[in-house]
Design a protein around this nucleic acid. Structure first.
Lengths: 220, 220
DNA sequence: GGGCGTCTGTAACCTTGGTTACAGAGCCGG
DNA sequence: CCGGCTCTGTAACCAAGGTTACAGACGCCC
């Protein structure tokens, strides 16, 4: 590791690492690379071989599937304290990435070389940690499949609006990106929601007027 | 385990189990339940708590997401020698199932109680085995998301037809089920493929005439 | 051969969501 | 206050897929 402060931050974010054996710990400190990445960078992409395993120290990564026409569907986000299961899956399965990772903000990563990741997995504590994340993500992905395959866009939009406070500051375009759709449709649907009295719209803002109604819509 | 033959079959299918410690092995044999299930049985369903961990000895399980209107989208299949990662995810994440499992044929399962599954995970060999399956399935699920979200149905149909030999014996209804669609659409699309000379149709049969053409179609 | 069940073909129609193409509206800096 | 930018509203049109509703074909058993 390149600096002591980074090491402390790492342990604070990933308490599991404090349970490593001394040997694993030393190896990690000696070989991991601290990397700074500006917002909006593609840190890995489809069909690309996995070069190492990233711990997110600060910032965050949005993992998306990209359509041939340029549209993107977000799969999940990796925030500090989590790890990128797609990287784990690649490293474990010897397969190339099958999604794209883009930093959502200026991001600090600690990148562990492939061999050292394998070694880390030899540590029970770390392995349990990765296991836990795996199972959570799998549940998320199943949920996403259900939404994409079966839910209509207005339901997905309603679900997206919920649970982010009463006023969201966002553009229609951002909402569309989040749903893997396009701006015009989101505008259309939001108008529909507004006409039903569920939300109130203004520039770069959506105000939730009837959370229960939205939940009802989302839940069908 | 209830009978020696089942034990041998189990080891043959899951060679990893031969690497267990004697203690784990004994525990497994003492507590696992051999269960016979006829074809078409729902062995677990959405929102249901996970009761145990199944090893598939014979037959197979189709894991599907069910839509409110009764349609189903297959997520993956569990064949003998594999394990059901959704069960693993439930047990690890303490969450209820979020998909449905249906036997595709008469099926023999060895069901391991929850606590004993946790104990099995304490065994390195077994844990590695589950890990491997996890990463493969995650890749599958990502692939599925891509298909559902971005591919048109004719492309998905073309992909489905490939890699099953030159003549497939199946009904349009079965193909539709496989795609999470309906019979009429599949008939329509198959007709289109036939008109392009890619396939030849007859009752309960699809003959692949131009695999390369199908692959081209599927790959866009 | 007649009757029945399953499988297939097909047409008309509908809904959803996406595309294209603008027109304004709000905001901000010069 | 003006020009330019981003964001929003909206209408016309289109394509994909699903729904409804039949008709006929094939196979099989009696």
């Amino acid at each position: 590791m390149n600096s002591a402060p980074a090491g402390e931050a790492l342990i604070a974010l990933y308490p599991i690492l404090s349970q490593l054996t001394a040997r694993a710990r030393q190896r990690l400190e000696a070989r991991a690379q601290l990397v700074q990445v500006p917002a909006g960078t593609t840190v890995f992409d489809e069909r690309q071989a996995c070069q190492g395993f990233p711990f997110v120290i600060a910032g965050g990564i949005r993992v998306v599937k990209a359509a041939p026409n340029g549209r993107e569907l977000p799969l999940y986000r990796v925030t500090p304290g989590e790890t990128c299961i797609i990287s784990s899956a690649c490293l474990l399965g010897q397969a190339p990435y099958n999604a794209r990772g883009v930093t959502e903000a200026d991001t600090t990563l600690l990148v562990v070389p492939t061999e050292d990741f394998q070694a880390l997995l030899g540590e029970q504590a770390f392995r349990d940690f990765v296991f836990q994340l795996f199972s959570e993500r799998i549940a998320d992905l199943m949920q996403l499949i259900e939404e994409v395959a079966f839910r209509k866009l207005d339901q997905r939009l309603a679900a997206l609006l919920l649970g982010k406070g009463q006023r969201l500051h966002t553009t229609h375009q951002q909402l569309a990106d989040e749903l893997g759709s396009v701006r015009e449709i989101v505008s259309r649907l939001l108008k529909g929601l507004a006409e039903q009295g569920l939300v109130a719209l203004s520039r770069e803002q959506v105000e939730i007027l009837d959370p229960a109604g939205l939940r009802r819509l989302a839940g069908n």
